[in-house]
């Protein structure tokens, strides 16, 4: 069977299971995702056919050295980039079938994003930043503001509502970003190196906050990281290497081989 036939085979299988019971359980399903970047005349195979199913309410860490394809895979799940081959399903919706407006709707309502560099809008206050997604979702202003205040209180920033990002510390900015990601009650939160720009202690607090929200709001958290503090809280750890899934570990396995994580990688 040629590569192309294999691909279409995989897609058909994916479509067939949409109505199956598998659908409700998995919030993200990636099938044989490949991505090639063209750097001048050279082709870089960032992803060589990754498949991964993520259950609703899971806390997943995607680990891997830089250049492993981790961030690329992450962008695929988030609908921020398109695969060359293979498909990604979010809540049983094939992302490849969505047009620009439907993708925007998905990013707005279904996925919350947290970035390493926080990415708050610099000209807006914390409150305005958290209200922003509710505006895009068409929520009435009053309801949106109410929701934003409630979320900022949840992340412990009820007293800094009217501060601009430049007046907040890194940890506080990331808390605002977490509140913002939750604004439209998404089913998935994608956190790209959420602790990458934070010191040890602040990073730990952010990880604990994410875990708490994961339990409380039953939101699926997918986090790309190489912060080993993340391992303690993750339900599963997916190791990515050279554009492929190297191995998937459950938390139980991790706890048994404490200290052996480095070797395991």
């Amino acid at each position: 069977m040629t590569m192309v036939q294999e691909q279409s085979q995989a897609q058909t299988n994916g479509a067939a299971s949409v109505n199956g019971e598998k659908g409700a359980e998995y919030v993200v399903r990636a099938k044989d995702v490949t991505k090639v970047f063209k750097m001048g005349t050279e082709e870089v195979h960032a992803l060589r056919g990754i498949s991964l199913d993520i259950r609703r309410g899971e806390y997943i860490s995607i680990m891997g050295p830089s250049g492993s394809g981790k961030s690329t895979f992450f962008n695929m799940i988030g609908g921020l980039d398109k695969p060359n081959n293979g498909s990604v399903f979010i809540n049983d919706t094939d992302m490849a079938q969505l047009d620009a407006q439907e993708l925007a709707f998905l990013r707005c309502h279904t996925i919350g994003y947290i970035f390493q560099t926080f990415n708050l809008i610099p000209v807006m206050t914390a409150l305005e930043n958290v209200t922003l997604p509710t505006i895009f979702a068409g929520m009435p202003a009053e309801e949106g503001t109410h929701r934003a205040i409630e979320l900022l209180e949840t992340v412990g920033l009820g007293h800094r509502l009217h501060n601009k990002p430049s007046q907040l510390s890194g940890g506080q900015q990331q808390r605002v970003a977490i509140a913002r990601s939750l604004a439209n009650r998404p089913s998935i939160i994608l956190a790209d190196e959420p602790t990458g720009n934070l010191d040890e202690k602040t990073g730990r607090a952010i990880i604990e906050l994410l875990r708490e929200l994961n339990k409380k709001e039953n939101v699926t958290i997918i986090s790309a990281t190489h912060d080993h503090k993340m391992l303690d809280v993750s339900d599963r750890i997916v190791w990515i290497r050279d554009g492929l899934v190297d191995k998937i570990q459950n938390r139980e396995d991790i706890e048994i081989q404490v200290g052996g994580i480095e070797e395991g990688h």
Binding site: V18, I90, N91, D92, T93, Q97, L98, D99, Q101, E102, A104, F105, L106, C108, T110, P122, V123, M124, I135, F136, G138
Partner: peptide
């Protein structure tokens, strides 16, 4: 059903866009 309840994103009303632009010009 095929799209799992994904609808088309709606455009923002003009007054929101104007508010954004105003804020941005004011700050910069």
């Amino acid at each position: 059903a095929r799209r799992g309840g994904v609808r088309k994103q709606v455009a923002l009303p003009w007054n929101k866009s104007i508010e954004f632009a105003y804020k941005s010009v004011k700050t910069r």
